[in-house]
Design a protein around this nucleic acid. Structure first.
Length: 275
DNA sequence: ACGAGCGCCTGTCGGC
DNA sequence: TGCCGACAGGCGCTCG
């Protein structure tokens, strides 16, 4: 499910609290329960469950699509992959159907990692250096200037959509926001990266940033049973709009496959050739 | 370096 | 109604 805006929204809710649950900051873990063993990437289950009790939540953050919970002595990292979610509920309420891990706090609240498809992963680490070492820059990193973006696009010779999805190139984009940003910039998903000139690169970087910002403002996107609370799905221009009129030119939106991912675009506003 | 194919999982939807 | 394949917001791996 979640891409950068959804993970960011979840991190903010855990940090600030919501109408229905308090902030986790400052709370002390009483007990950790691993409910599906493969969900835990590192360390082993006994170590994990042994190390967590007594640790206090210091800080909650995000890097790419990873959500980080800094504890007094370790750092807990989540990747939600396709169907993961983090929920704060009263400890006495029953576990939800697809809960894979649960942290009970002394306060009587519980953090549940719910993940229908079991692709999500959890790490308990001393630091995130090696886990995050190969990640690309955050889209909003000031070091990522239009000039720098153009340069790294020139260094590659790869279809732009799979390149944007590559977390080593730039971190945080997924299938929805990539399709939306490419539409916003008027760039065909199969366009080869090195063919983008400075103007194209600047336009694309701006499109990525504004699309992600609008996603965050909408608290992310909610689709089907996966992830609740966001409304960005009401603002999709091309994603899941196959056959609908393009909001810019009225031609029907196309769907194809690029890099084995469903890909939505306007063939008129995002021409492959002619430039 | 790049892209295709596949595995990992459960659930939903459309077609027959 | 039931079955069956396609598909789903991710990513790591192998292979050519």
């Amino acid at each position: 499910m979640p891409e950068l805006p959804e993970v960011e929204t979840i991190a903010r809710n855990l940090r600030r609290g919501t109408n229905s649950a308090p902030s986790l900051i400052g709370q002390t873990i009483q007990k950790a329960r691993l409910l599906w063993s493969r969900t835990l990437a590192e360390p082993d289950a006994d170590t994990f469950q042994g190390l967590l009790p007594g640790q206090k939540v210091v800080e909650i953050g995000r890097r790419a699509k990873f959500l980080t919970i800094t504890l007094s002595e370790s750092i807990l990292v989540f990747h939600l992959r396709m169907s993961g979610d983090l929920r704060v509920e009263p400890s006495e309420s029953p576990l939800a159907k697809h809960d894979r891990m649960a942290l009970d706090f002394q306060s009587g609240w519980r953090l549940g990692f719910n993940d229908t498809r079991k692709f999500g992963r959890v790490w308990l680490l001393n630091d995130t250096n090696s886990l995050f070492a190969a990640l690309g820059l955050e889209p909003d990193d000031p070091e990522l200037t239009p000039k720098r973006f153009h340069e790294i696009l020139q260094q590659r010779k790869r279809a732009i959509k799979p390149l944007l999805l590559d977390q080593h190139f730039i971190a945080g984009l997924g299938n929805i926001y990539t399709d939306e940003a490419l539409f916003s910039a008027g760039i065909h998903p199969l366009r080869s990266s090195e063919t983008l000139d400075q103007e194209d690169a600047a336009k694309l970087l701006e499109a990525i940033r504004s699309t992600l910002a609008r996603g965050i403002e909408a608290n992310g996107a909610s689709i089907d049973w996966v992830y609740r609370g966001g409304s960005f799905q009401n603002n999709f221009q091309v994603y899941q709009q196959t056959g609908n009129p393009c909001p810019r030119c009225g031609q029907p939106i196309n769907k194809t496959t690029v890099g084995q991912r469903g890909t939505h675009f306007c063939p008129n506003c995002q021409p492959l050739t002619g430039e």
